[in-house]
Simulated assay, not measured.
Amino acid sequence: MTKKTIGILVTGHSPAELEETYGNYADMFTRLLGGFDFQFKRYFVVDGEFPSSPEDADGWLLTGSKFGVYEEHDWIRRLEQFIRDVHAAKVPMVGICFGHQVMAKALGGHVEKFKGGWSAGPVTYRRSDTGEEQVLLAWHQDQVLTVPDGAEVVGKTEACENAVIRYGDWGLSYQPHPEFTPSFFEGLAEARKAAIPQSLFERVKKVDAPIATDRIAREIGEFFERPR
């Protein structure tokens, strides 16, 4: 049987001081989904490298980014159109953090910087679809505040109402980062500590909680594997 191809749309660069040890964001997702029989293509859309067609892959995965989806960059507007094209073509898509937000914005939702401040470190996500509580690593201030028509919110936290979204059989997106390991997150927090309040950095600079990485990796992989 032919392997499914997952196209990774890379929307940001990991901190340079961490890349030698952990690789880039595409590397993290190939490791996350390493238990599945996929092959991967990488497109650094943040640098203007785009697929030619939604059919260039059997599924699409959008990474996180330091950018805000509301920022005026040509590649973000182009990415929003590509998301709409993928949606119209019914090729499955998964989004993470920035990817979660840009999927919502492209399809008519609203994203902005959350007035309640940052979510960072291990955060408990309550899932209404599975009944689970899942601890995952968060690093964001922007949030999806209004979801697109037809989308279903299936995960939330105390500070983030629209944290996991399903788009019927087509799409699945997460505000947290299942691809982050605790050691990478600790390095990220150190590299970007100037971006967050010092008091928050002190709380999140060490990750001690067990993270539901394997559970989300399985959910994403099975979503891509599902016959359509």
Rank of each mutant, 00 (worst) to 15 (best):
67 F>P: 00
205 K>D: 01
219 E>P: 10
146 T>Q: 14
136 L>M: 12
140 H>I: 04
107 L>Q: 00
131 G>K: 15
87 H>E: 03
200 L>D: 01
20 E>A: 12
163 A>I: 05
32 L>M: 10
11 T>Y: 09
228 R>K: 12
132 E>Q: 13
35 G>A: 14
24 N>W: 14
4 K>V: 01
26 A>P: 15
183 S>W: 12
150 G>E: 12
59 G>I: 07
1 M>L: 13
169 D>C: 11
17 E>M: 15
123 V>S: 10
177 H>D: 02
134 Q>E: 12
145 L>D: 00
196 I>G: 07
123 V>M: 14
81 Q>D: 10
82 F>Y: 06
96 I>F: 04
155 G>T: 05
154 V>T: 05
193 K>M: 06
102 V>Y: 05
155 G>F: 02
227 P>L: 07
21 T>Y: 15
74 D>V: 13
134 Q>V: 09
77 R>H: 14
139 W>F: 09
119 S>T: 09
214 D>S: 15
193 K>E: 01
139 W>D: 01
44 F>T: 01
155 G>I: 02
50 F>K: 03
41 K>R: 13
192 R>N: 08
27 D>H: 15
174 Y>N: 00
38 F>K: 15
228 R>A: 06
170 W>C: 02
118 W>L: 02
138 A>G: 12
29 F>N: 03
131 G>S: 12
162 N>D: 02
183 S>I: 06
56 D>M: 05
219 E>S: 10
15 P>M: 14
74 D>M: 13
25 Y>H: 13
94 V>E: 01
190 E>T: 05
216 I>P: 02
51 P>K: 08
125 Y>A: 07
101 Q>E: 08
191 A>N: 11
54 P>I: 04
92 P>E: 02
94 V>L: 08
213 T>D: 10
118 W>Y: 07
179 E>A: 07
181 T>P: 10
209 A>Q: 14
220 I>P: 00
114 F>M: 04
15 P>N: 15
180 F>C: 12
4 K>C: 01
45 V>Y: 03
31 R>V: 04
82 F>M: 08
197 P>F: 02
40 F>N: 07
159 A>G: 08
158 E>Y: 11
22 Y>C: 06
150 G>Q: 12
79 L>F: 09
211 I>V: 07
45 V>E: 00
163 A>Y: 00
30 T>Q: 15
195 A>V: 09
179 E>S: 07
153 V>K: 05
72 E>L: 13
181 T>C: 12
163 A>K: 08
45 V>W: 00
20 E>L: 13
25 Y>K: 13
126 R>M: 11
108 G>S: 10
183 S>C: 04
57 A>T: 04
106 A>N: 05
117 G>T: 02
70 Y>H: 07
68 G>D: 02
120 A>I: 02
187 G>C: 05
5 T>W: 08
46 V>W: 07
199 S>R: 13
82 F>K: 03
50 F>Y: 08
122 P>T: 03
178 P>I: 03
213 T>Q: 14
149 D>W: 14
16 A>H: 14
27 D>Q: 15
228 R>D: 06
80 E>Y: 11
56 D>R: 05
135 V>P: 11
211 I>D: 00
